[in-house]
Design a protein around this nucleic acid. Structure first.
Lengths: 151, 151
DNA sequence: CTGCTTATTGCGAATCTTATTTAATAAGCA
DNA sequence: TGCTTATTAAATAAGATTCGCAATAAGCAG
């Protein structure tokens, strides 16, 4: 899980016959400058770019997010909102995980070094090239436990 | 993560003012009798029931799957197909996790006792009531590493 | 630097999954 | 046994993501 610059992104793309476009560069830049713990949906990213005066189509955003997740640059998070979120994929010691309330969708980040170790070991054992490893805990938060009415 | 019978499901539902319907009973039964390691999408379950002559609408299936996941009866898995899969939520020592190839979507199940312990501890520390904890590894399988062409 | 090949973009339409609305039904309780 | 209201089926809608295609432009060869 290396950290990318525009240059290293370009060479990794070109090595595979792909191209570095201004759109891809801009999107990488957004994620690299995102506050720690923040993650964006495709729609979020689209709006954010609109507000900055950057005109990138939703199609391109979806394509780029998927591409970068498959390259290991971004992590694809399945939180509780019904659509995917993305964040930059950083190695130890920034690597973290999510605790989600299934009722109110509140999400807490937590760290645990042994998880990444387990992921690395498991992938290696099977001959897989590791891109990302996530632990997701589904639970009911204290507030929703007390308000025991809704689903 | 207790194991449910139709009876215990009924009392847990009734305690909250909800009802045990034949549809819910049938769906629980399907998951309880599923071979270990098998998981179903809403569509899968719908087709399976159709073939058995059970007529349960897709709406009801979606509602029931979500309900049972929120009760902790089922695990909601986000594998690579673009839609959710469900399986019965079994405690140690049947608790397991998934290693997914992001290119061909091949999925391998693996076990690791310490993950469930970490999940339990983390949820407890935050005062959350644990329903499920999953580790998901995104990686590239040996076959797709060799065929280095597609995304 | 210039031109060529083809990956990539933007747009609109299509698709796929999931949620919602509504009238009819039936579970659970008194 | 009857009443209240949660639940169902069916149709419709909503939301997220993908696809097809023509126009554009990145990267390579000369």
């Amino acid at each position: 899980m290396p950290l990318y610059t525009a240059g290293s992104l370009k060479s990794e793309l070109n090595d595979r016959g792909w191209r570095l476009t201004p759109q891809r560069e801009v999107i990488l830049h957004v994620f690299q400058n995102l506050a720690r713990g923040k993650h964006l949906s495709a729609e979020d990213l689209y709006n954010l770019l609109q507000n900055e005066g950057e005109q990138i189509s939703l199609s391109t955003i979806y394509r780029t997010l998927k591409l970068m997740a498959r390259m290991g640059i971004l992590r694809e998070l399945e939180l509780a909102e019904g659509h995917k979120h993305y964040e930059i994929n950083q190695p130890y010691p920034y690597h973290h995980h999510h605790l989600i309330c299934v009722r109110c969708n509140k999400t807490i980040e937590f760290k645990n070094d042994s998880i990444l170790k387990t992921g690395t070991k498991t992938a290696k054992k099977e001959g897989y090239h590791l891109l990302d490893c996530q632990m997701t805990i589904h639970a009911v938060c204290p507030t929703c436990q007390r308000a025991l009415l809704p689903i």
